[in-house]
Design a protein around this nucleic acid. Structure first.
Lengths: 160, 160
DNA sequence: ATCTGCCTTGGAGTGCGCTCGAAGTCAAGT
DNA sequence: ACTTGACTTCGAGCGCACTCCAAGGCAGAT
């Protein structure tokens, strides 16, 4: 394939000055945008779009050449984003949540509220979809019965 | 409110020549588009859009003045449309289904296939949403615990 | 030195599903 | 006769969430 993509970035123990910015741990692995895309199931386009749109907690780190370098924390956050988005939270609301988290401690109650009302909406929507699915199941039952009957007719005709 | 809206249309036993077109029954009640909208939960805009877009089985009947007059069959069909749409079937696929039904008997197997693969997709999506909801529930649990702990601290501080 | 390939940016484009507006018709009420 | 209000059509507009493009930068391989 291609040469190791994260050549300049993933030097496991390099004492880069920015290492201390992320935390006390020496140096976490950094991923290129393509790798992050693969891990998260999003496209690179979408990852850039999310960052542009303010859905990330902070700007993603960069290598010396300006390429994005995703850390473990970024991936964890993107995973949460994906949960919220996949359950139907609009981007504008995800953004609100991100802003709350970004602004630090003290608003946990607001965040909880936001998550809980989202949860309620999701439950309602699950119930609705399930009920509509029931109606579709009925329809499927009708067609199945119809075709089974036709099948019997056919069998009778073929056998008789 | 407004005077009886369906004045010209809903004359229960009028032997209008078009009555026989719908079926052997004398005269089914006909609804204005506004009434149909109210019953189905769609807007009048959406009802017209669906018809324009070929989602209806046939053009909705009209009064002498050109107004739409929805019959029971139309409402039943719209209800099915709503089930399909609410479970995430794209309009283009609903259209395919409508075309199958429109083209008469003989393609029941194809219709069944379509409904069953839709059903499978819906089940998959329900599972996905449910699983992501679980992750969100965890997050909610974390915040709840955090706030409960803070609440205890607060209580201790207030009491002590 | 040049080629390859992944990355960067800002901005434009796409697909879906409505949603709305303008201009006009019709029937009933005053 | 005129006003009101619900309806008609056609076509444009909108919000959402991507998705893509053009032009360019940088690093490693040949």
């Amino acid at each position: 394939m291609t040469p190791t993509p994260s050549a300049t970035l993933a030097q496991p123990a390099t004492p880069t000055p920015s290492a201390t910015l992320t935390g006390p741990r020496p140096a976490a692995a950094r991923l290129t945008i393509a790798e992050a895309a693969e891990r998260t199931g999003l496209t690179t386009h979408t990852l850039r779009y999310y960052e542009r749109d303010g859905l990330m907690l902070r700007a993603v780190e960069r290598t010396s050449s300006g390429h994005r370098a995703y850390g473990e924390g970024d991936l964890v956050w993107i995973t949460l984003l994906t949960c919220l988005r996949a359950t139907g939270m609009p981007i504008r609301e995800v953004k609100v949540y991100a802003e709350l988290v970004r602004s630090g401690e003290g608003n946990e109650l607001v965040r909880l509220d936001l998550l809980q009302s989202h949860r309620a909406r999701v439950l309602a929507q699950l119930a609705e979809v399930t009920s509509h699915l029931g109606a579709i199941d009925n329809k499927i039952g009708v067609y199945t019965a119809k075709l089974e009957a036709a099948g019997l007719d056919f069998e009778r005709a073929a056998t008789g």
